[in-house]
Each structure stands twice: as structure tokens, then as C-alpha cells.
Design a protein around this nucleic acid. Sequence first.
DNA 1: GGGTACATGTAATCAGTTACATGATTTA
DNA 2: TAAATCATGTAACTGATTACATGTACCC
Lengths: 172, 172
Amino acid sequence: MGSPSLTPTSYVVLGLVGVFGPCTSYTMKQFVSVSIGYFWPFPHSQLYAEPVRLAELGLLTEKQETTGRRRRTYTLTDAGREALRDWLAEPSDDPTEIRDLSVLKLFFGAQADDGDVVSLARHAVDAHHRRLAEYEQIAANPGIEAHQRKTLEMGLAFERMAIQFWESVPDP
Amino acid sequence: MGSPSLTPTSYVVLGLVGVFGPCTSYTMKQFVSVSIGYFWPFPHSQLYAEPVRLAELGLLTEKQETTGRRRRTYTLTDAGREALRDWLAEPSDDPTEIRDLSVLKLFFGAQADDGDVVSLARHAVDAHHRRLAEYEQIAANPGIEAHQRKTLEMGLAFERMAIQFWESVPDP
DNA sequence: GGGTACATGTAATCAGTTACATGATTTA
DNA sequence: TAAATCATGTAACTGATTACATGTACCC
């Protein structure tokens, strides 16, 4: 039982089609760019390639326009909805990966030239401020679904923490 | 100017050889598993494959034992040290990626069965507690280099934040 | 009606992962 | 000396990224 070789990206697609109902890759792309894309980034080409695979596996159905843009609309099958629900039911043990080049550079800071770490920290503070502002703008929309808002709160908390952290770096 | 097509992993290797001086892949592996491996994970095979590439590029030199384990010891060349320093000097604009399957599942929580989100949160609290304990144990060692300790503090701050966050999830 | 931005995809490449495999060393 | 574990690698595969390419709609 269970699903053969679905990646996180697969479930993202299943989840998105679940959220929207029948939709196209572009619809997903738009939504991703202001939501999960912030903490689980991937190129838009995946949103075109992955649904094809999922359709082959019988987890989505595909209907292509015969006219105009000939875009493909995807719909969850029962099997797809079940695969998604199974995945959601199983708590994850994989640890969080925080991939941050600035942190990586900080780690090797002893080998940097004087001043480089300080300017690294300054840039990071700026970047996290900008990111925080983006999140706050998104959060200002009152219509966000509860779980998605919760996720956003994680983002907000992270950015605030990161700002505090990087502000503390230049000091002894 | 600048380096042609070095990945973050490349710089990790350069940085590690810089930290240790001449060393083998296994030495790197050991250190990675209690330091950067926590927030920038990758399989040990990379630590065998990547130095070969870097040696071809002239950024490392390789010396292989002729006897016993025939292990290869790598050393930074001047070009390698310069490439590393250049990279460290340029502040990164790439945003942080927080890859966390639990957060991803939370995001799609509206489509989960009753109770699944709550148990997801419980598992996450546990996992982050365990991770925090590991970090604290590492931090107890007084001999850690300053920048590395700073990085560890980021990890500590993140885990504390994550615990707080996930504890808040089951509630309204 | 021409330019520009939005929209929709495909093909090739490659870094990273998985899986395997064996050699060396320690320990019981 | 057998077994277990540590150490050292390689080969194949593939998901993801990069780069390209073109179609459609809108705006000036």
C-alpha cells in the first residue's frame, strides 16, 4: 500500500489541485509565488512537468483545451485525494533544513577578510526586513485560510528571529 | 572574473579544508555530521566526489597514500583559498529556504482528516525538542570557534522558536 | 499595429541522492 | 578468528534547474 515514489513536489501539486479544485499549472504558479514558494521554492517548470507524471500515475486527470491556449486543466482523482490524505496523516520525522547561504558564510567567517562578516550581517538584516515586510503585507489580507495563516505565522516568527540574530552578529 | 560554476557544496568543501588544513573526506564527514550538516545536509558521497572536481579545477591538490587505505588527502591551493575568500566577501542575496515537511503538511492542513494536524504538531514539538537538546550538548563544548558558535546560536534560536510555534498550532 | 508583459510549455543538463560494494580495524 | 563496525569509495539514476522558445493578450 501507499504511494510509490512521490516527492514533496508531487504532494505540493496534489495539495494545490485539492485547494483550488480543477486548475492549470499557471494558476498553481501564481499561488505558489505568494505562499509556499517562500519556504519551499522550486522553478515553475516543475508545475508543468509534475502534473504529467501524476496523471500517468492516475492521481490526477488532465483535460486540454482544443482551442486558443490549449491549456491543460488538472483535477484530483479519488486515488489522488487519498494519496494526499495519507501523506497528511503521517507525521514527518525529517528534520527541518535551513538552507541559508549567509549562515553558511558566517560559519566559515574565520577565514574571511576583516569586515566581510560585518557586511554579511548587515545585508542579512536588510534582506530579512524586506522579507518580513512582504509577509506582513500578505498577512494583512483577512481572507487567508486558517492553516495557511498559521504557516505564514511561522514565517513571520522566523524573520523576526533572524533579524534579531543577525543584528547580534557584529558585536562581540 | 570569478569562479566558474561552483556550488554551495563546493564552498563547503573548500571551507572545510581551510578550517582543518590538509584532510581526508572522512575527516570532513565527521565534522559535518556535528556542525553544518544540521542545517545544510548532504550525503557523504559528495564529500568524496566534490574534492575530485575541485582538484581538477586547481582549487585543491590531492595526495594519495600508496599503502594501506590509500586515502586521499586534500590541501587548499592559493587559487582555492582565494576562491573561498572571494565567495565569503560577497554577501548573499538568496533568501533563506526553510524546507520542513511538517510545515508543508500544515499548509495543506485543511485537507487533512480530523486530528492529523494535532498529531503533526505534537510530533513536531517532540522533534524540535530533541534537536534542541542535541544543539545544547554541542554548545556545552567550550572550545568551539566563535563564528561556528554564532551559527549554532542561530540553530538554538530557531529550535526554540519552532517549539513555541508548534505548541501554538493545536489551539484556536 | 507594434511592443511589452503575461502565459505556457519543452529539452538538455547536472548536481545530488541512492544504492551498492569492499577494505581496514577493532573487539569479543 | 569471526563478527561487527568504521572507513572509503563508485556507479547509476533522476528530480530539479537552466535555458530556450513561442503563443497570446493587452496597452500605447
